[in-house]
Design a protein around this nucleic acid. Structure first.
Lengths: 149, 149
DNA sequence: ACACAATACTTCGTATGCGTAATATTCGTA
DNA sequence: TACGAATATTACGCATACGAAGTATTGTGT
């Protein structure tokens, strides 16, 4: 199969969809007065709201990001006052990442923005269709995963 | 609707799917000996293989990218020898972008890599499912589009 | 106990994208 | 025709991601 028009190419559609939702999230955060929360922070915040004191590698694993990516991401999050790093006393290679008060109290607004933004982005898509979409995307990820070994 | 696990969040799935395919494309290009062709070049090359001498804004429109993004992209493509810019004599604001010989001859290998990479990434997804996926993604783009005005 | 492998994290260079502002040119209208 | 609006491009700062390579620490096999 060869894809001619951009709107016929799944890669184009995926990239664009990701970018427009990222933009919408950024805008939504600004409007809601939590503009310091960048879209990339979400994966980390989500993990830490569940379980605090995770290490860098573990956060990366959960968000699907490389450790080297996490470093810069956590630098920005620390700069913006959402998390702190704390050396682990057991294993001194490890940095424990924990939420600040600001990181904790942001949860409500942030979850709200994400929900509303996704609802808008996915408007007109039924529950069933959404499930199908997610299932297909999971299959793409599974393909990539099995490819790498 | 609130999304708990990453694999339950459409935004996470979309981002990850985009990134893994981008990675796969990069790797595929390298293996095929056209490693200078970066994934971002594809949108521009596609447009120029169709019609040469397009201006920067038009290339951006077709690829879904901002003009300011195009500048850096075209800089890299020029550096890597795929395109040249040429001032338009009619309208001196305009830069005509045209393919070099290298840019033209790359078409066959590049299209080949893209086809094979997408086939692998989308393995196990039927024609019908792929159509559905594309339709849903187009709807997301349409939503974003109508949102912005 | 010691050499070597594995793990955790960071640093650095590069790619990719956006938005804002600056510059140059052209267009439309009074 | 002069002038403000629109258009085309670039410049700059920032966010986000990867991979390769470096550093520190821990684990393992002999």
């Amino acid at each position: 199969m060869t894809f001619i028009a951009p709107t016929d190419c799944p890669y184009y559609l995926l990239s664009r969809a990701t970018l427009v939702i990222t933009s919408a999230l950024r805008a939504g955060m600004n409007e809601a007065g939590v503009g310091h929360v960048k879209p990339s922070y979400l994966g980390v915040l989500w993990s830490l709201w569940e379980e605090e004191g995770l290490k860098v590698v573990e956060l990366g694993r959960r968000a699907g990001l490389e450790p080297s990516t996490m470093t810069g991401l956590l630098d920005r999050m620390e700069r913006d006052g959402f998390v702190t790093r704390k050396a682990d006393t057991q294993d001194r290679r490890v940095q424990q990442v924990r939420l600040t008060k600001k990181g904790r109290t942001a949860q409500k607004s942030v979850v709200d923005v994400v929900d509303k933004t996704l609802a808008k982005a996915l408007a007109g898509i039924s529950e069933k269709e959404l499930e199908k979409l997610k299932e297909l995307l999971r299959r793409v990820l599974a393909n990539a995963h099995s490819e790498n070994r």
